[in-house]
Design a protein around this nucleic acid. Structure first.
Lengths: 309, 309
DNA sequence: AAATTGTTTTTTATGGATTAAGGTCAAAAA
DNA sequence: TTTTTGACCTTAATCCATAAAAAACAATTT
């Protein structure tokens, strides 16, 4: 059966929305709610009916108002708002990056399904989509193999990333002055400065800023394959840094400074400066990732294979 | 239920194998057959048992021989040897490239499933894998949209292809003389010459040669993401040219000559020659693809948008 | 007329069952 | 001892069913 995570998430959002209304206020129309909550009217109606049952709103049809004696406004637990597909993704990434999944490990659909508490269909669907991230391989009629989150994965990933980013950065530098992207990158520049000034407390926010920055650069000359590739990077970094917190503050501070140099190079429209700043930034991002694969990668842990700093 | 296409294909292969034996000859061992037919021993045993029932082999266990009065040796029809997944792929590509599927068309899992005579699961699985080919887009909870086999698809595809191929070609040119790839490319050179001399009758064989050639180049500096991307190209070209035969002989002849120049540049280890030949070849391949998208792409068919030759 | 709600129809997300194919282990033969 | 076969166990490919969510259509209300 389909899960009702869409409803539950939207219901929680609706609770927040109602919380901002005063007693007796009329509710927005179903269409408006549909738009604001990002779900279909069908789901909105289910939410309204639930709000009614729970004594949060009164009336029906066009005459729905926030009840004066509102009920408890109990939200659904976060866990119930996560779709099966997302859960599978999270659990799989955890298994892969956090547990020490060794290169060559066979991936068993049935076992994962049991372990994750979902049907095999869900696992298959995930694996099929995940296949092109370069970390697993299908053996027809015989399951999947985990290729390993290894140094060579990081190297190959960054080789492509560098090619793509250099190309986009160059294109960015050649944008006409009239392009709206210039404003947007200046705004990002300020955001970087702001974050840097509050780095001690807000260093977690860098990850999201990083993603926005690189996507902005890519948008200078859109290419669906590059965007698609950037999804891989985003996913890997998202999960990877979620579980790899050592030195996070320092790492992010360095990256912010690199971004600033990079942004300034872009604003200066100087091709060779752009290339330099871009390479420098990607180079250190690569270093970080490679270092972190060491724990996973038997090859990389030979003596002398890893720098200490 | 799982289809038995693996068995049927392997059975047909086994028939060919037995056809080469004389009456009374002993059959190879199960393990040998398993290796030669590319299936598990379980499937081999099913084949042997079927051969037995059909009166093609005699005896059991270790004492199986080809029967002197062999039965009819009837093969399974080709169609029954194609797995569901492959069928879905073929039918979908046909729908997309041959029928005039318009950009923006909604893709309906249920309808495709009915149309192709498979369960929706099969469609979903295909769409999930196919997603990263850049031709369809998922709308969560609301199906898929066909983005169109358009000129911009071709342009974006070739932008990446060029980046990747130039990089691999450069790497190829820098390979040490001791590399075994030099022999292989010389062999390919001869194959090209041979095909060119028989072009009138064998021009269909170019497609496969083309794929092998470009994969060889990529293998100079392997990168999983590049290989993965090349799968897209292979698939697109495979199906595209399967249904777009106009001018095929001439097109292929031109491409072979371009390949020859390209190969000679590689053999000459001259970076600028390599780059030149590579660009020239990809440029004309791009032209061909773009021209052929015109029929699909409403944008591209404006007057003046298309050259006549 | 345009927006809103009520009703019905489609379609996707997910679980579950079934059979083909793969894999394992030990007995038998070479 | 290594192959080969026999018997059995697991797993992947595939179909099907059902509830949630979306979409389409009709009936109201402003």
């Amino acid at each position: 059966m389909k899960t009702d995570t869409v409803f539950k998430r939207a219901f929680n959002d609706a609770i927040d929305l109602v919380a901002n209304l005063r007693d007796g206020d009329p509710l927005p129309s179903e269409n408006t709610l549909s738009r604001e909550l990002g779900v279909s009217r069908t789901t909105v109606r289910k939410i309204l009916s639930t709000l009614d049952h729970r004594g949060i709103v009164n009336g029906s049809g066009r005459h729905r108002i926030v009840r004066s004696a509102r009920g408890a406004m109990q939200r659904f637990p976060e866990a119930e708002t996560i779709s099966m597909a997302t859960q599978v993704e999270e659990r799989f990434m955890e298994w892969m990056l956090r547990d020490n999944a060794r290169p060559g490990t066979a991936i068993n659909e049935l076992e994962l399904a049991r372990q994750f508490g979902v049907a095999t269909t869900g696992i298959r669907e995930f694996l099929n989509r995940f296949q092109h991230f370069g970390l697993i391989e299908r053996r027809p009629n015989a399951g999947w193999v985990f290729k390993g989150f290894t140094a060579s994965f990081a190297l190959e990933l960054f080789e492509i990333r560098e090619m793509f980013e250099l190309r986009s950065a160059r294109a960015f530098g050649e944008l006409p002055v009239s392009s709206p992207l210039w404003e947007r990158i200046e705004a990002l520049h300020s955001e970087h400065l702001l974050l840097l000034s509050e780095i001690e407390v807000r260093y977690h926010d860098f990850s999201e800023l990083d993603s926005r920055f690189h996507r902005l650069i890519n948008s200078a000359a859109p290419n669906r394959f590059i965007n698609d590739f950037y999804d891989i990077i985003t996913l890997i970094f998202h999960y990877h840094y979620q579980w790899n917190k050592q030195d996070e503050r320092h790492r992010n501070e360095v990256a912010i400074r690199e971004h600033l140099t990079y942004i300034e190079a872009l604003l200066g429209r100087n091709p060779s400066m752009i290339e330099l700043a871009c390479r420098a930034h990607l180079g250190s991002a690569k270093e970080t990732l490679i270092r972190s694969t060491a724990g996973h990668d038997p090859e990389a842990s030979r003596p002398g294979g890893e720098a200490t700093s």
